[in-house]
């Protein structure tokens, strides 16, 4: 099922942070990991990912380093979450949980009127 851009727009940063919080990754790896973990629900566009990564790095939520690949000698930029990024992720998660719970209650709960 394809998710609309508007719906996924606000959570993309949180998703990226969440994936990177588990392990240091480079861009292509992040995209594939997100696809895999979301069972292809989230198919992130590369043109979307890299601006998000750079913005997160500028905010000090991520740090990066260049690593030379052993396979083909190509340099890849690996991203790692910082302490500040971990705190931000926790905050966004809590916000998301509150939001999603509230949405779920509205969608599935019994009608309550004033």
């Amino acid at each position: 099922m394809k998710i609309s851009k508007e719906l996924s727009k606000g959570s993309t940063g949180m998703i990226v942070l969440s994936v990177i919080s588990r392990s240091e990754m480079y861009g292509y790896q992040i995209i594939k990991t997100v696809e895999m973990m979301s069972e292809n629900v989230f198919q992130m566009n590369e043109g979307t990912l890299y601006p998000i990564l750079h913005a997160l790095e500028k905010e000090d939520y991520l740090t990066s380093r260049w690593v030379e690949s052993e396979e083909n000698g190509r340099k890849r930029k690996y991203y790692k979450i910082t302490e500040k990024g971990i705190k931000e992720l926790a905050s966004q998660k809590q916000e998301w949980e509150t939001y999603s719970t509230a949405v779920g209650k509205v969608l599935t709960g019994e009608l309550q009127t004033i």
Binding site: Y26, Y50, H54, K75, K77
Partner: peptide
């Protein structure tokens, strides 16, 4: 740096 990063991905 961005050029290198994008090129790496595109490759």
């Amino acid at each position: 740096e961005l050029k290198d990063e994008l090129l790496s991905h595109l490759l």
